[in-house]
Write a protein that binds this DNA or RNA. Sequence first.
DNA 1: GCCAACGTTGGC
DNA 2: GCCAACGTTGGC
Length: 161
Amino acid sequence: MHFWLMKSEPAVFAFTDLKQRPTRTEPWSGVRNYQARNFMRAMTVGDLALFYHSSCPQPGVAGIMRVSRAAYPDPTAWDAASEAFDPKSTKARPLWDMVDVTWHADFQTLVPLEALRADPALANLLVLRRGNRLSVTPVTTTEFQRICTLGDATVATARAW
DNA sequence: GCCAACGTTGGC
DNA sequence: GCCAACGTTGGC
């Protein structure tokens, strides 16, 4: 069991969008960074991930999702019509992977970026590092639980630990 | 819109 | 393999 933080611009795909999907599940496509891809490859089904809203009026952690399918090839990479198209990736030799994520639990409140920064217990959180741009990062158990406390997550989350 | 930080690209 | 140029990210 590992914990992660995954960024998305809410104007493109928000936490509520995930919750409103018919199966509350979405493939996390479009990651085009090797380090982030490798983190996704390290994920296992059942891992929990914080859904982080970036590039928006209120950046912060919006809720919790669960990895529901391990890494598999990202088809948007070989779709010429996709913004995430990458000619270096082919069906025969896929370069980019994605995982499926499923809504897991809401927070009572969004945990704003400034609250993450203000918390001494989160001093080493990777997403707070200067200039960090990784869209997928690992989070320690302690950090994950701390952020859940800040967000006052529902009991469903507590049971999953 | 600005700009710092970082990853990627490509010439050499 | 170096490194400058470029593009992108993301907070402010």
